[in-house]
């Protein structure tokens, strides 16, 4: 569950962004669209706790994230927030299984190994678990990053342009996977994108346009 008041953020070069209040629950995914340069990624980083808003409050799972900082914020981020990026990043030296296991390791959650396998089967990447990230296709990588995002059972899943580098088929699959699995796992889903296709793939959404 995500709740924010009107947020503002300005960069050092003077560029200022203002956002409307946002609300997102497990039942209704939030879709944020807008032109490039409209501050979509900035908003996502604010919601992810990677940036601190100049004004406004962010409440996740009943906790005001805006009042946290330092290692406490790092820990909070690890426990309650997961992000799926346009270009998923992995630790190139670790295999897929260990990459997924990194998320609960850093958030301090104890997840049984069987959970990783269960999730991998659900996302159709169980054959890729012992491969290195570099050997995976773009679609496979995005599934792995969804697995990593969901493994530590966050309260909020943020997706930053998750479909932009995928073809229609993969874009639809990834959107549906995000939707169904966040709902199944009781995770509030926020998708930030300029990709018009997502709007059609996503059912029962709240839509906010920024910029």
């Amino acid at each position: 569950m995500l709740h924010t008041s009107a947020l503002t953020f300005s960069y050092k070069n003077g560029k200022t962004f203002k956002y409307p209040p946002l609300f997102c629950s497990v039942e209704k995914p939030l879709l944020i669209t807008g032109q490039s340069g409209s501050g979509k990624t900035t908003l996502l980083h604010l919601l992810a706790g990677l940036l601190k808003p100049d004004q406004g409050l962010i409440k996740i799972n009943g906790q005001y994230m805006t009042s946290l900082s330092g290692p406490v914020l790092d820990k909070f981020r690890g426990q309650y927030i997961s992000v799926v990026y346009q270009h998923p990043h992995f630790m190139s030296a670790l295999n897929i299984r260990d990459n997924i296991a990194l998320a609960p390791y850093f958030s301090g959650d104890h997840i049984p190994q069987s959970e990783i396998e269960k999730l991998a089967v659900e996302l159709g990447i169980n054959d890729q678990l012992y491969r290195l990230p570099s050997s995976l296709s773009a679609g496979e990588k995005q599934r792995v990053s969804i697995a990593r995002a969901l493994i530590s059972k966050p309260a909020l899943l943020l997706a930053d342009e998750p479909t932009s580098s995928l073809d229609d088929n993969n874009a639809r699959t990834v959107t549906e996977l995000l939707m169904t699995h966040s709902r199944q796992n009781g995770v509030a889903l926020v998708i930030v994108t300029h990709d018009q296709r997502v709007k059609d793939f996503l059912e029962y959404k709240e839509h906010v346009y920024v910029g």
């Binding site: 990677l50 820990k75 690890g78 990043h89 630790m91 301090g108």
Partner: peptide, 16 residues
């Protein structure tokens, strides 16, 4: 850099 930023976003503290 991206890998390091990634594990930070996964909850890894600066000190770690």
């Amino acid at each position: 850099k991206y890998e390091l930023a990634l594990i930070r976003s996964l909850g890894c503290s600066r000190m770690k």
